[in-house]
Design a protein around this nucleic acid. Structure first.
Lengths: 341, 341
DNA sequence: ATGCAAAATGCAAGCGCTTACATATTTGCT
DNA sequence: AGCAAATATGTAAGCGCTTGCATTTTGCAT
């Protein structure tokens, strides 16, 4: 085993460069406040020693951590992974580090994670969606931690948000589907409890149904959790009804992919026998056949803008204005007119 | 804007409970060293104040961070996301937090991230693959930071590893393909530079080709980067050769999905006209049609075991033994016998 | 009651860094 | 050349916690 030399400290650098620790610190943090000759001397000491600042000490002294925390439901879902990747890239660009944790869609875990991230000195927090215990907002407020919500834009929420209008996006898609002549609609949604994105999407569908003058009983909604298999199961339940739907709107692409696979297994033609739509427009939507009609969400743009906005909130103590991003319907072969019979 | 009360400290708790900070600290960290009555008094002060320990201070004083760092090529790839999720779950279970960053497959970024994570006090590091600048190993050694490699098992490497034998796995698959009668093999690999997983997989194919007595010129290898579109492009290059391959082995499922899509676009039947195989066995492999023959990798198990092993290394100062995980070939319709003509 | 070991608690010194504030050096004028 | 203003650097006080050691309290056998 190697001899464990402990890491060089600011003090070591200062001694080697023949200056005070204050000067070394300044060299590192605001180089323009130090004259060139000194700066170079310090720099070579840093290089010679292989010095890396101790982060905890810096956080403690500066009361800033240059860390942003993000709590997402799960990393396994491509949509979060992608948005987070963009978020992280932008953060890194601006000198921040990302601390991620996932809540597995469980409110109590999310709350615990929030506390943990704050204890770790996160300068700001990225949260997904608006549904959560109000006391969390009080806590954030009291600790004065800037937080931003992504994946769901709501104009008058506790926290500013960068995202899109889940309700309107789904309203538009459902209206489009109904406009094609579909009258019996099935919905495979993610669990709506504690998930405003899912809830608003379903709501958008209900509103479109009402808006187009369809009876509410032409709509069947199944809630299930995020997994391909569950999409398949829900699909078969829906299609085994006495009067099966002619179009099935899924809460996301993954559920839609499950539905599609089940349709093939059941020997049903899509969209000949039944149309299927997704939501998110992840790669999957283009790969399955027939490719999925879905709602395109600008995940990377969202991650990117969320980072910029959150940094702005952190650095300038501003409240954050939020930003609504546009989504658009992507038409692909999985959606067609209902069979004339 | 809310009044920004700053967080309560250990001192506040101590005062409220009428004990010393040392006692409060002990209540939190080794409750059995404190008598019950005191412990309860302290606990109620903690609750009343909503006290959360300041992490940076704790790290600094204890020289332990209960943080594990992981540097993965990208979060956008489902295989890393999934393994990492399992890794994180296990870590969380054992009281550790995960610090993730992604290197975008760039060695210099990975190196920077390693330094950053260490500066942040990571108690241990999870790295992907074995290919990296030797000086990084020296650095890790010198700083005495336990590190573990995942996604690639090598018995005699600098760092212990939890993973599978990429070469053998691909050797087996290629042997199986050749055994089916294929004689002209195309390979779509990820970039092998700095990526031992990709390199070893290609090597496994070469060895199988030699082993089965095929001429090396029956093998065409294309290297490209990880994206569906690139898989599609490589596929069309491969098939436009004068004597196109009858089977195409892809370095991962994503490239295979791209190849498959391109096959459809070119009107080629899979596996009738050409067989395609993947690697990883992510969801995608089951969803595309025809479903992909691929190599199943136990990503979650890997993440899980890596966490256990790394924690063991951190807590007991042991060297880590590594563990080889088994992969298996999953036969699905994308692979068939070559056309008899 | 008394004495003693063991258990519980307190004291106080850091951990490595940032940053007011104080001091020293340089610069630009007259 | 001499002085004030501006610039560069040094001094030292924390930041909130852990922990070795000192001290007090407790439990128990005598």
């Amino acid at each position: 085993m190697a001899k464990s030399r402990s890491a060089p400290t600011l003090d070591d650098v200062a001694k080697m460069a023949g200056v005070s620790t204050a000067t070394v610190s300044r060299c590192l943090n605001s180089p323009d406040r130090v004259v060139k000759a000194t700066r170079e001397r310090v720099q070579s000491a840093v290089d010679a020693l292989g010095y890396t600042p101790n982060f905890a000490a810096r956080v403690m002294a500066a009361k800033r951590s240059f860390t942003i925390g993000a709590i997402i439901p799960t990393m396994e879902n491509a949509i979060f992974a992608r948005g987070l990747q963009a978020f992280q890239e932008e953060l890194h660009q601006r000198g921040y580090t990302l601390l991620v944790s996932s809540s597995a869609y469980k409110p109590e875990i999310e709350e615990e994670q929030i506390r943990t991230l704050i204890a770790r000195g996160a300068d700001g927090l990225l949260l997904i969606g608006h549904d959560r215990d109000p006391e969390i907002y009080d806590f954030l407020d009291q600790r004065n931690i800037p937080a931003l919500v992504a994946w769901s834009y709501l104009p008058d929420s506790k926290l500013p948000s960068v995202g899109f209008d889940n309700r309107a996006a789904m309203f538009d898609l459902a209206s489009h589907v109904i406009g094609l002549g579909h009258t019996r609609i099935g919905v495979i949604s993610a669990r709506v409890d504690g998930n405003d994105r899912a809830r608003l999407r379903v709501q958008g569908i209900r509103e479109a149904v009402a808006d187009r003058g369809l009876e509410a009983n032409n709509l069947t909604v199944i809630e299930t959790s995020y997994e391909i298999e569950n999409g398949a199961k829900a699909f078969s339940d829906l299609m085994n009804a006495t009067t099966p739907p002619t179009a099935i709107l899924c809460g996301n692409d993954v559920l839609a992919a499950g539905a599609l696979r089940q349709a093939q297994k059941m020997g049903l033609d899509v969209p000949g026998d039944v149309s299927i739509t997704g939501f998110d427009d992840i790669e999957l939507a283009r790969i399955v056949s027939p490719a999925l009609t879905t709602v395109h969400v600008p995940h990377r743009e969202m991650g990117h803008k969320a980072a910029l906005q959150l940094i702005e909130m952190v650095e300038n103590q501003t409240a954050g204005t939020g930003e609504q991003l546009a989504t658009r319907i992507v038409n692909r072969p999985s959606l067609g007119k209902p069979a004339s019979g």
